[in-house]
């Protein structure tokens, strides 16, 4: 009886909301929330005698978003296929080391260093993808296992920063084009490429199809295995780029730069905050960038207010749960519509 009752309630809820659906997709919600957060933050910081959105503040938000943005864009693709990648944090550290050690301070080795780092990333992504598709291991376990293997390798071989990048390569980390740092442009470029891949190409559509329902996709003639492997490789390469960027910024490779920042769970949080369904098949890169910007803005506001750093985590946790709770309501109404 209660089921019937629930159904009726849901249908009426759906018809009521149908009129608003166009204007309030999760992506739009994210950016509205971002604007609201910026306004609220500006007021709070203003009351405290500071300015949130001067050039330094905007730069701060954008710079904070760069690395998480790169990782989260990759993570978005994987999550849309209904998978996820817990190995990105160690991969970021590994790639920063590979890049910095290959370059070893010489200008001529910049290109090989970057390529090698991205190559290593692609191989790790390939392993992730193959373990998921061929060995049929749940993505959570597969990428957790790969993460543990990477961690073992890093702990065995490195105790601290290693390698060094040439001065010329540090331009990537610190230079700006006009007001905008190159790193931010790089991140936006990668995001744009990912957007194009997901929304404008055939493999991109397949990504959504596989995430929506693997069996239906397979029966419709989509090569599901190939789609999942591609998603994992793309995600790993994006994480590799993040590692390369961090190497340029830090001047050397650091084994735990990815895990200290918790990029594995943090990137998943950003993706989910951006309205992508954890179960796959729904969402996109644009929302993810919004999610990343929200997290970065929160950090910047808290720094400006000199709030206890531990308080940030508490707020983050609450924001994450509340956001997903809001999306879950919408998803439910849409499903029954």
């Amino acid at each position: 009886m209660s089921v019937v009752h629930e159904k009726i309630e849901l249908t009426t809820g759906a018809t009521r909301r149908r009129a608003r659906r166009i204007s309030l997709t999760p992506t739009v919600t994210v950016y509205l929330a971002l604007v609201a957060l910026l306004v609220a933050g500006s007021v709070l910081v203003g009351l405290n005698g500071g300015v949130l959105l001067d050039q330094g503040g905007i730069l701060n938000i954008l710079t904070r978003s760069t690395v998480l943005g790169l990782v989260a864009v990759g993570q978005t693709i994987v999550i849309i296929t209904g998978s996820l990648d817990l190995s990105v944090a160690y991969l970021v550290g590994l790639c920063s080391l590979v890049a910095a050690q290959t370059m070893a301070g010489s200008d001529g080795m910049i290109v090989p260093g970057v390529l090698l780092a991205l190559g290593v990333a692609a191989v790790v992504g390939l392993v992730n993808g193959l373990v998921v598709t061929v060995l049929k291991v749940n993505a959570f376990i597969a990428t957790l296992g790969v993460a543990l293997i990477l961690r073992g390798y890093l702990e065995q071989n490195y105790t601290g920063p290693a390698g060094s990048v040439p001065r010329a390569f540090q331009h990537l980390g610190f230079d700006r084009v006009g007001p905008i740092p190159i790193g931010v442009l790089l991140m936006l470029l990668v995001a744009a490429a990912a957007w194009f891949y997901l929304k404008r190409t055939r493999p991109g559509y397949h990504t959504y199809a596989v995430g929506g329902d693997v069996d239906v996709a397979r029966l419709s003639g989509v090569r599901t295995g190939r789609t999942i492997v591609t998603a994992h490789v793309l995600c790993a390469v994006a994480a590799g780029l993040a590692g390369v960027f961090l190497a340029s910024r830090l001047g050397s490779g650091a084994p735990y730069v990815g895990t200290d920042a918790g990029y594995d769970l943090e990137s998943i949080a950003a993706v989910v905050l951006g309205g992508t369904a954890l179960a796959g098949g729904r969402g996109g890169v644009v929302g993810t960038i919004g999610g990343v910007l929200i997290l970065a803005t929160l950090d910047t506001i808290f720094d400006d207010l000199a709030v206890d750093p531990f308080f940030k985590d508490v707020v983050r946790g609450i924001v994450l749960i509340v956001a997903v709770a809001l999306y879950a309501r919408r998803k439910l109404t849409r499903r029954s519509a």
Partner: peptide, 27 residues
Amino acid sequence: LVTTKLLVPSFIVTLGMLLILDGAVFL
């Protein structure tokens, strides 16, 4: 309760709880 009543996937709920507990305890 958050998982069942607010329909948030448990992965996210408990991830959020992880952040909250970590932060709150050290706060």
